[in-house]
């Protein structure tokens, strides 16, 4: 079943891709092939692959139970929030919080996770910024 869904998604994606490829506006300088032809070939390959997956699907993978999917969704949310808040709150604070949350969900006790988060954030800051001179996100307080 999962493979059939994959196949349908691929075919829809291929259709969207090919349609977009035909919509590309070309200017004066055009080579014989133009900017749309290769994407159309790719779209066809994608659609054929999808079709095969629909016709001859593999056995379905073991999807995790809903609880675990929620865990993964939570991790994704943490990472997205991290990306958003990085410029606002600076590297060390954002990283400590994000790493603590991830570590907690990966099975550390809350206190240990918080400590590990701080160690990871400060450790990366010291090694990559202070020692190696990499520029990290600066928050309102400069680190």
């Amino acid at each position: 079943m999962s493979d059939r869904v994959l196949g349908v998604v691929c075919i829809l994606l291929a259709a969207l891709f090919i349609w977009q490829a035909t919509q590309i506006e070309t200017g004066f300088i055009v080579d014989p092939l133009g900017p749309g032809a290769f994407p159309i070939i790719i779209g066809v390959v994608l659609a054929l692959g999808g079709l095969y997956a629909i016709v001859r699907p593999d056995a379905a993978p073991d999807w995790p139970p809903p609880g675990r999917l929620l865990e993964i969704a939570f991790a994704v949310a943490v990472m997205l929030a991290y990306a958003l808040f990085l410029p606002e709150f600076g590297f060390v604070l954002s990283t400590a919080v994000a790493a603590s949350l991830l570590g907690w969900r990966l099975g550390s006790r809350p206190l240990a996770a918080a400590l590990a988060g701080i160690v990871i954030a400060v450790g990366i800051y010291v090694i990559f910024h202070l020692v190696l001179g990499l520029s990290l996100a600066r928050g309102p307080w400069g680190f």
Partner: peptide, 10 residues
């Protein structure tokens, strides 16, 4: 794993 993720972001 959190370390890996954070270094990736860095």
């Amino acid at each position: 794993m959190p370390t890996v993720a954070m270094i990736s972001f860095v």
